[in-house]
Amino acid sequence: MRIERCVCKKRLFSQLKLKAAAERLSLEQLCEATGAGRECGKCLPYLCRMMRTGQVVFCEIVAEADELYDPTLRCEQIHAAKVI
């Protein structure tokens, strides 16, 4: 299984990561600007991990219990062009 996007908004995590890094957005700001994580919410744990680690492709299910939601998370430490 390959998980790489917000299905509701049809946005790749790699695109969302680039936007967050380029605009220095927090997780909350990214969700507000793109709508990702706002409909079904299933991608929120993936977005949290993306913001924390830079990972944009997942081969395992990431549950809410695995990644606690922190709206202040930023990916400033991750180079915007780096795609894992």
Rank of each mutant, 00 (worst) to 15 (best):
E23C: 14
Q15A: 12
A20V: 02
Y69L: 13
T34K: 07
L25T: 04
E76L: 13
A22S: 15
T53V: 02
K9E: 14
M1D: 06
R38K: 15
Y46I: 00
C59S: 12
S14L: 00
K9N: 14
L18M: 13
L18A: 14
R38F: 09
R49S: 10
C6H: 08
C8S: 14
Q55H: 10
K19C: 06
I78H: 10
P71I: 06
A36K: 07
R5T: 01
I84Y: 11
M1Q: 08
K9G: 00
E28F: 12
I84D: 13
A80H: 15
T53W: 05
R52V: 00
R74P: 00
C48P: 00
F58S: 02
C6A: 11
E4N: 12
M51L: 15
E67M: 06
Q77A: 14
L68F: 10
V56N: 07
I61Y: 10
C6K: 06
I3A: 00
K9L: 07
T34L: 03
V83S: 12
G37W: 04
A21W: 02
L73Q: 03
V62R: 01
E32Y: 15
L47Y: 01
M50A: 04
Q29E: 15
E23Y: 13
A20H: 08
A20P: 09
R11S: 08
L16Y: 09
A36D: 01
D66M: 04
Q15G: 08
D70M: 04
K17S: 08
M1P: 09
K19G: 05
L16H: 11
R24M: 11
T53A: 02
A80S: 14
Q29F: 05
I3V: 11
V56R: 11
E60G: 04
R52E: 14
Q29A: 15
Q29M: 07
C8A: 13
S14R: 11
L44N: 13
P45Y: 01
R11W: 09
F13Y: 09
T53D: 12
C48Y: 01
T34C: 04
K42I: 10
L47F: 02
K19M: 15
L47W: 03
S26V: 01
T72W: 06
V62T: 07
K42H: 14
H79E: 12
R52W: 08
T53E: 13
C40I: 00
I61M: 12
Q29Y: 07
T53C: 00
V57W: 05
A20M: 04
C40S: 10
A63R: 13
E39F: 15
E76N: 15
L12P: 12
E23G: 07
P45K: 02
E60P: 01
M51T: 01
H79I: 06
E67Y: 03
C8P: 10
E39A: 11
D70N: 14
R38Y: 08
R49A: 05
Y46M: 01
C31H: 05
M51A: 05
Q15M: 08
Q77V: 09
D70T: 07
M1T: 08
F13A: 00
G41Q: 10
